[in-house]
Every structure is written in C-alpha cells, then in structure tokens.
Design a protein around this nucleic acid. Sequence first.
DNA 1: CGATGACTGGATTCGCGTTTCCGGTCATAC
DNA 2: GTATGACCGGAAACGCGAATCCAGTCATCG
Lengths: 222, 222
Amino acid sequence: MLDAAADLLVRWGYQRVTVEDVARHAGIGKGTVYLHFRTKDALFLTVLLRSHHHVVARMADRMAADPAEVLPSRMTASVYRDLADDAVVRPLYLGDPEVLGRLAHEAAETLGELGGKRDVASRRLFGLLRDAGALRTDLPIEEQEYVLRAVATGFLFVDSLSTPEVPVDRDRRAELIAHSIAAAIEEPGAAAQAGAVAPQAVAMFRELAADMDAEWRRRVRR
Amino acid sequence: MLDAAADLLVRWGYQRVTVEDVARHAGIGKGTVYLHFRTKDALFLTVLLRSHHHVVARMADRMAADPAEVLPSRMTASVYRDLADDAVVRPLYLGDPEVLGRLAHEAAETLGELGGKRDVASRRLFGLLRDAGALRTDLPIEEQEYVLRAVATGFLFVDSLSTPEVPVDRDRRAELIAHSIAAAIEEPGAAAQAGAVAPQAVAMFRELAADMDAEWRRRVRR
DNA sequence: CGATGACTGGATTCGCGTTTCCGGTCATAC
DNA sequence: GTATGACCGGAAACGCGAATCCAGTCATCG
C-alpha cells in the first residue's frame, strides 16, 4: 500500500492523488486504507518518513562497510546518488511544492523533531571528526555546517534549475560534490582518520534510523 | 523613470505594477512612458538589463582596482555582496517568478544572447587563469565551471530557503563562499598569479559591460 | 473480525455573464 | 516637437449558483 502511495505521489503529486486511487492501485478497498491510517496526511507522511528512514539507514550501512563514508564529502556524494534514484525523497529534500502539496508544510513540522535529532547527530559527528583530525579547524563548526549545507544545496538545485547543458553524468557530479566539500572543510588525507570515528558514527546513525523507523511504524495502525 | 520602475518592480512584482503606476511614481504622464519604451516589457527588461550591466561594470572596476578580484572566489563573493544590496538583480539571479512574472521567461530569452557572451568571457577567463597557474588543472574546465555555478547557486539559495538559523552575517557568508570556491578550484596562493591575468580580464568584462550598456540604451527610444 | 464500497457533507471546481483593469493609441495642448 | 491623459478593446478578475470531487464514516458482508 505504501508502495502504491509512493508511486502515485511522485507521478501525480499530493493534490491529484486520492485515497481511492491509492486503494485501487494497491488492489484493496478504500476503507481498508483507513483501517491502517487515520488520515490521508498520515498515509503520505508515512511514505515520506519511510523513504527518509531508508536514506539514513543506507548511510549507516555504508559507514559500516567503509569507514571513509563518515566524511561529509563522501556522505553527501552518496546521498546525492541516492536522491537521484529515489523519486520520493528527492522532492522532499528539494521541498518541491508541486509534489508535496500541503505536505510540504505539514511534513516540515512532523519531520522537524526528527530533523532536530539529525542536526544534533550531525553536530556531534562534526565534533568527532574535528577531534580525530579529519575536519579542518580553520572555521568554527557552525560555519562548516553552513558551508556543507550551502554546497550540497547548490549541487542539488543547480540540476533542477534552468541549465541547458549539464556537463557530466550523475556519478561524476557526485564526485564533484565530494571534491568540493572535501576541499572546503576536510583535512587532506582525512580518510585515514575516518576509521576512528566510524563506529560511533554508525551507532549514532543507526539510532537515528531506528527512531525514524519507530516513528513511521507508529503511524501505522497495525 | 527607470528608477521608479525598478523601485515598484521589487516592491510589488511585475504583474502588480502598471505602466500608469510607473508614470505616476516618476511624476510624468503615461503617454510619455510610451514615448521612450515600445512596450511595458521593454521598459522592465531595460530595468533588468541596466542593473545587470551595473553588476558587470562593478566587477570590472573591482578587477582594475585589485587584480585578485579576477579569481573566481573573490569575484563570486563580491557579486554575492552586490546581490545582497541590489534588490533588482537578486530576483533576476534567483529567477524569482514572484517578482519577474512573465519576464522570467522573456528575460532569459533576451538576456540569453548576452548570457552567451558572458559564458564565453567566463570560459576564456578560466582558460587564462589556468594558464597563469591560478586555477587548478585537476579538473577539466567545464567541470570547474559547473562546480563554481553549483557552489555559488548553493550559497544564494540556502539563504532564501527554509533555514531558521543563518549562522553568520552577510560579509562572513561572502568570505565563506570565497573560501569554498578557492578550495575547490583554485591553486593555493593564486592571488599572486592574478596580476598577469587582470588586464585582459578587465578588458573582457569592460567590453561585456559595454555590450550590455549598448543593449539597454538601444531599447530606449531617445 | 477484517475488509469493503456506498454514502455524506464540506470543500473545491466549473461555467459563464458581468465588471474591472490596463496595455497601448492618438487627438489635443503646449 | 514633446508631453499628456481620455479612450479603446481584449483580457483578466469577480460573483455565484450548479455540479463535482473526495476525505472520512459506517452498515454490511464474508
């Protein structure tokens, strides 16, 4: 059912999709949808939450498999690649009002508390990375986070913006993100220090993922 | 008259401003406006063009005064500061449809040919900077331009995006842009090489500015 | 019990006649 | 020659009743 909702959401946008559409598309009755979700909003919020959770979980998995993934450059590039493939989170990250409809507002609110937790995690990760000598210390930590956010935002938006000619393919663009972020805030050879931070980072993000998982499962009636 | 039009444009947006508003605000008759501009579009396009010209001209002036301003990092930071002060070009660079209205489409078209010239100039500047050893050569030139565009876009948008807390003031943000761009595509100590490129860069941008100046003056009847 | 779809009412959209608005013109005044 | 504002007509905004839509409910069924 969530898959059906997700599919229709990205194809038509929140406004145009009716609960009956979702039910039909999932091969169930409309009433059944309301057996599982209190409201239409709850349904689609859950869709968003699930996908968001997926992104964070993959992040943690990648860190576990390769410690260098804790570096902001690598992390961001990987998320960028994920976004390219996941049509649900892309509008979420881009705040696309066309797709999100009124959810854009609603989502920000509900995801806000989780966003807070994520910000805390991110802040702590930055602290760890600085202590480990993987991040530079020539900028205060808030400025580094601002730079990261700005650069990541830029690469995300510049594609969806009026640019007739995008010079390179998806993977190369991801590499360019990594290059830019690494150059701006990371220490050369930071990868070597990543190993020391990875375990804690993995734990943090797994916990975050678990929170998100719990959150969206909590929204399903049974 | 152009000042009046610019003022109203940024305050109310293209749609809400009528030609009569502009005339009244400029203390002249409505017919007089049409004595100088063939159409409403031409009037506002001229406003945009003039401001855009202003930005480029200031760029050239800064380069003449300080050769280090030819460096993409410095250049972008300065333009960022200019945008913060100039309420007319800001929506233009941001493509704000609220303010630009249908001009967003129209402007892109007419400014397109000038945009082409600017792209050529930019490309040539990048070539010169690489030859002078001010830019790195670890990335192909198109990718460096893409990175520059992406990073600049990011810093522009991240402010106007839903970010409750912007950690630093305007000038500091400009410095962070410079920092990020320098780190991503410039050679350390690039400033020393800038002097060799500056004269040609100044010439190029002055010519570009002259083109733009001619273009918007051409649109005024007399 | 879990599942369903007919049903309801509040909201949204549609159709369309009427009014208002405003870009552009031009006869007039200076 | 230059400046103006009354004026024109097409387009957009408005009003409003009718028609439609759809989130959410609930009686019914298996």
